[in-house]
């Protein structure tokens, strides 16, 4: 269990402001926030890598506020993994045990077990620079998990991977946590990541923890304006999936979306507002997900314009450039057609 109690750190231009939360045993907590919200600083405070001005941090009931990082027993995985380039994969993973003076025979055994657990034993003698992003991430996880940390801190662990690998590793993180139910605090700016992985989500903005709740609470009933803006406008839907002639169709209210997935039954999918293509006329296109709706809201965001389009009482959020907004001469209440490319839809 982690307790963060009124933690404050002021570095002049930025402040972690009076952050308090509790995370019960085995919880996967995702801290969601835009870049510059203080996510890394929060993790580094919990790890003891930076000092805090006031407040207290407890790990499993023990006050660790004054302890140096090497005595807190936390696992830390950075965004770009920070594998020691001067060591092999095996040496990287064994590092924490070597620091604890674990006997060589036991160390070898545990490293082997950990590599097998994460399916990376084939990487044993390799150097970090020869690994792919996904492999690096697993090695970094293995290195952090082998010390049996009381809390695992993940700093944007999926952000530097490409979309395909990211999805796979997201699933893997979930499985690993199920098998190895350690307290996790995972920070990210990616809403989908938060939605899929989190037992609970905390929303961080400008150094303040705005709200904390289950993914459903945060995504469906956000309490603050910031959260609403940050997560609420994105297109996340639940529906019933059915396979027909090799394609999967999902029914959401009166709308039918075609998605790329082999799943059936209730599924959740999402797409980004910038992947919605808006037009005044019906498009002659092979794209399946073509809908017509009414503009209910226009939000000027500088070079971009965000539209909310109502289609059979389902609100879709779209982002277009200011130029195409002006070219199409769009107004509140206009009827528009839009397309969501099947490949842009992420099935969770």
């Amino acid at each position: 269990m982690i307790q963060v109690d009124k933690v404050t750190r002021d570095v002049g231009s930025f402040k972690l402001d009076n952050i308090s939360f509790e995370s019960p045993d085995g919880e996967y907590l995702v801290v969601l926030g835009p870049s510059g919200a203080g996510k890394t600083m929060l993790l580094e405070s919990i790890a003891g890598l930076i000092s805090i001005d006031s407040g207290k941090i407890f790990i499993n009931g023990k006050d660790v506020t004054k302890l140096p990082p090497e005595r807190r027993n936390v696992g830390f995985v950075y965004q770009d993994y920070m594998l020691f380039p001067n060591m092999t994969v095996e040496e990287n993973i064994a590092f924490g045990l070597a620091m604890r003076d674990t006997p060589k025979s036991e160390r070898d055994k545990r490293v082997q077990e950990m590599m097998e657990f994460l399916g990376i034993d084939y990487l044993k003698g390799r150097r970090p620079r020869t690994l792919s992003g996904g492999e690096k991430q697993r090695v970094a996880l293995a290195r952090a998990l082998i010390i049996n940390p009381e809390v695992l801190l993940l700093d944007e662990p999926l952000s530097s991977l490409d979309a395909q690998v990211r999805k796979k590793l997201r699933e893997d993180l979930k499985k690993i946590h199920e098998k190895h139910p350690v307290n996790v605090i995972h920070v990210t700016h990616d809403q989908i990541e938060a939605f899929v992985l989190a037992d609970r989500i905390g929303v961080l903005s400008q150094g303040r923890l705005l709200e904390l709740g289950t993914p459903e609470e945060i995504f469906k009933k956000p309490k603050t304006e910031f959260t609403t803006k940050f997560v609420g406008f994105d297109n996340v839907f639940k529906g019933r999936a059915k396979r027909e002639n090799g394609i999967t169709l999902v029914q959401v209210g009166d709308l039918v979306f075609q998605v790329i997935s082999k799943k059936e039954g209730t599924i959740t999918f999402a797409f980004r507002p910038e992947d919605v293509i808006v037009s005044r006329e019906k498009l002659k296109s092979s794209a399946r997900n073509q809908f017509t709706g009414k503009i209910t809201e226009i939000i000027d965001e500088g070079p971009l314009v965000r539209l909310k389009i109502n289609v059979s009482d389902i609100i879709i959020s779209a982002i277009i450039t200011k130029k195409s907004f002006v070219d199409m001469n769009l107004r509140h209440g206009d009827i528009v057609t839009f397309i969501v490319k099947t490949t842009s839809i992420h099935v969770l």
Binding site: E44, A47, G48, L49, P68, P69, E70, R72, N73, V74, G75, F76, Y78, M82, F84, F95, G96, M99, R100, R143, A144, I147, L153
Partner: peptide, 10 residues
């Protein structure tokens, strides 16, 4: 790198 080493007990 230093930070990671510290969290691992160094």
């Amino acid at each position: 790198y230093h930070n990671v080493a510290r969290t691992l007990g160094a």
